[in-house]
Design a protein around this nucleic acid. Structure first.
Lengths: 234, 234
DNA sequence: CCGGCCTGTAAGAATTCGTTAGATTCTCGA
DNA sequence: TCGAGAATCTAACGAATTCTTACAGGCCGG
């Protein structure tokens, strides 16, 4: 319940980046995806408030996806598409989309339309909360506070929280560095890898991990990381 | 909801007719108005579900009307306008419209967009209040007074009040510096950032925050601020 | 005109977080 | 088992951002 979450599904990385930057600036959290399959996987553990969906995806029929989203998720759906025909727009809206933006778009307008969707509260999900418990720890994302088994509190920073949240949202599942970079809004910079290392290192320290033998955040050499431990969201 | 009611505000009778026909055909009830004054008179006795508003009205500034509608009515608002500039669309949406359709339009698309609005149910928009309570505090904006848990009063200034109100109106949500600047009417100047820092610093001391570990106004490095704490307006 | 309050500017301290670089660990083939 | 090379870890540094205090100009009532 902190900031509204906007997912961006588009196969062009630069467009994802642009949208992500603008929306972040406007106060939203964002998650970017290049493929429908990745996006659907993430949906199992996350419930976005607004979904921006590009119809021109290579790996799946976008309209089918929109229809499923409309039926199954509580999110508002905004189609972003290069197809400007009226008929396209009508069928998109009829399948359950809430808005239809034509490429090329203006960032300011996209932001305004996302805001309009969030504003109608259509996206209120009752049970969603921002607290997770795991292995004796309690992470309160709304307060940026981590509580250990004895109830002792310590603060974590925004950057640390992003990583921690990523782990807790997909426990016991491999998270590749590429995914991480995407989710953490990392600029496509090459040196971002090192920054991630450091973030994780700091997080490990804060979780009291033994560097030689981490119990919670396991690194998979050459692939990514895995968060072990049972997570319960509240 | 039996048949959703759609109002059509446009000064050209033929357009009203076209829209009315198409919407009736699609299963809506419609009411047409050629002037804002007529429309407002009708609003006193009827509560439409969706309002189509033409911005090019002769007798009133359309955007003002949209803003009032957004604040006072629970209806979804769709602006219909000949002005195609991005800036027009953005300000329209920002004033509270839910959608923006450019003339000349296709009937099928208008119908689809009206349907999309009806589908998500409408918004409750809170009216203006002047008193808020949070975490033992009570802020009285009409008197510029802040009351602590023991009923002890202290005054706050206008500038402090602006910031506090901003926080209380969007609790537990990230507020970016850009948003703040926008709301507080800050000149785009670079030095306004520092002024904001100072305002917040002063507000924090007034709220008795521990500088090392603020509980209510949390800063998100590189992004903005977040106000924690449950707020109730009265 | 004086004095108090409000508010922005300036400046130095403090914090966050990415970058660098050397150390460490891992994989794989010899 | 050993060694080379790649990947990862972490301590230290520094740039950017934010916090706080001090100060000055503006406004208003007396």
């Amino acid at each position: 319940m902190t900031q509204p979450l906007v997912t961006i599904l588009d196969d062009e990385p630069e467009i994802r980046q642009m949208l992500s930057d603008a929306l972040t600036e406007a106060g939203f959290r964002t998650m970017g995806f290049g493929r429908a399959t990745e996006f659907e996987a993430a949906l199992r553990t996350t419930a976005p408030d607004v979904c921006l969906v590009d119809l021109g995806l290579p790996d799946r029929d976008g309209l089918t996806l929109v229809h499923r989203l409309a039926l199954e998720s509580g999110a508002a759906i905004i189609i972003v598409s290069g197809r400007a025909q009226v008929q396209d727009r009508v069928t998109g809206l009829e399948l359950g989309a809430d808005d239809y933006i034509i490429k090329p778009f203006e960032l300011a307008e996209v932001v305004a339309r996302v805001r309009a969707r969030v504003r109608d509260g259509r996206t209120e999900r009752p049970g969603e909360s921002s607290t997770a418990t795991f292995e004796g720890w309690t992470a309160r994302f709304d307060r940026y506070v981590l509580e250990d088994a004895n109830g002792k509190e310590s603060a974590f920073s925004h950057a640390e929280g992003e990583v921690l949240r990523l782990f807790l949202e997909a426990p016991k599942r491999l998270i590749t560095r590429a995914q991480m970079q995407e989710q953490l809004g990392g600029a496509a910079g090459e040196s971002f890898d090192r920054a991630m290392d450091v973030r994780i290192s700091r997080l490990r320290t804060k979780l009291g991990e033994d560097p030689k033998n981490p119990k919670l955040i396991k690194t998979i050499y050459g692939a990514g990381y895995i968060f072990l431990g049972d997570v319960a969201w509240r």
